[in-house]
């Protein structure tokens, strides 16, 4: 499924956070959003699954998933978030067992037998390369895992709901190199059957995994294009400056 934004703007408490965003996140691609802190990257990401729907944010413009707008009656909030999964910067495992964490979301969407549940847990843990490390303690508390393991658990939990789109908000910023590369490998694999939107501060990471890069600064899209283009000489001076030196005059 593709996600497109049309002239999306966001205002929070009379402050403009996003201005006139027109972007297309395509199926089968990893799109990385880069830019300086406070530029609106997280806000853009959070608009895509309407996770801030009960706050007083005023959106104008539109976001479409496939052919329908996500603000329309076509998608209830719960359905929308089933299709669009999100992984946060700080891993937030629930104080339950590992199995219960993974089944937490999907249990509310479908009925499963005990065997089906078990199989799902194993499958998702394998998908995020966590199974070998925790196969002997699936009933123990998830709080005992390391940060890297917790983040992969959160990813497995999100995958259990079977989303077609994955939104990741700087998911590896607190992780060790092993967990980081495990997550990057996973994302490269996932894009084959889904859409990935990946916010990152790490320019090298963007260069490694992205098919498409968006440079966001002060709530506006400065430039967007394929990785080749953005990291090459044909990009604008501002883009080149940021991608090379991580500084921006905007």
């Amino acid at each position: 499924m593709n996600i497109n934004t049309q002239q999306l703007s966001l205002e929070i408490a009379n402050q403009t956070i996003l201005k006139n965003i027109n972007l297309s996140f395509k199926q089968g691609e990893i799109t990385c959003i880069v830019g300086p802190s406070g530029g609106g990257k997280s806000s853009l990401l959070r608009s895509l699954n309407r996770i801030d729907s009960d706050k007083n944010y005023s959106y104008s413009g539109d976001i479409t998933l496939g052919t329908s707008s996500i603000f329309s009656k076509e998608y209830s909030l719960e359905q929308l978030r089933k299709h669009i999964g999100m992984v946060f910067q700080k891993p937030c495992v629930f104080p339950f067992s590992i199995s219960k964490n993974i089944l937490f979301g999907v249990k509310h969407h479908q009925r499963m037998t005990a065997t089906q549940a078990e199989q799902l847990v194993v499958a998702k843990l394998k998908q995020v390369a966590l199974y070998d490390e925790v196969s002997d303690r699936l009933d123990q508390s998830a709080l005992e895992l390391s940060i890297g393991q917790q983040q992969r658990l959160c990813l497995a939990r999100t995958l259990a709901v079977d989303p077609q789109v994955l939104l990741l908000d700087e998911p590896t910023s607190a992780l060790d190199p092993y967990s980081t590369s495990a997550l990057e490998n996973f994302v490269l694999d996932f894009k084959k059957q889904g859409t990935v939107v990946f916010v990152t501060h790490n320019i090298a990471q963007a260069k490694r995994i992205a098919d498409h890069v968006v440079f966001l600064c002060n709530g506006e899209v400065i430039e967007s294009g394929s990785t080749q283009h953005m990291f090459g000489c044909s990009a604008t001076a501002q883009t080149q400056q940021y991608l090379n030196t991580e500084t921006c005059d905007c």
Binding site: I51, R81, F88, C92, F94, H108, H109, C154, T158, V161
Partner: peptide, 15 residues
């Protein structure tokens, strides 16, 4: 964060 994570998994407020 707990509420956000639960919401992002498709749970409504009561759930």
């Amino acid at each position: 964060e707990y509420r956000d994570n639960a919401s992002s998994l498709g749970l409504n407020k009561s759930q």
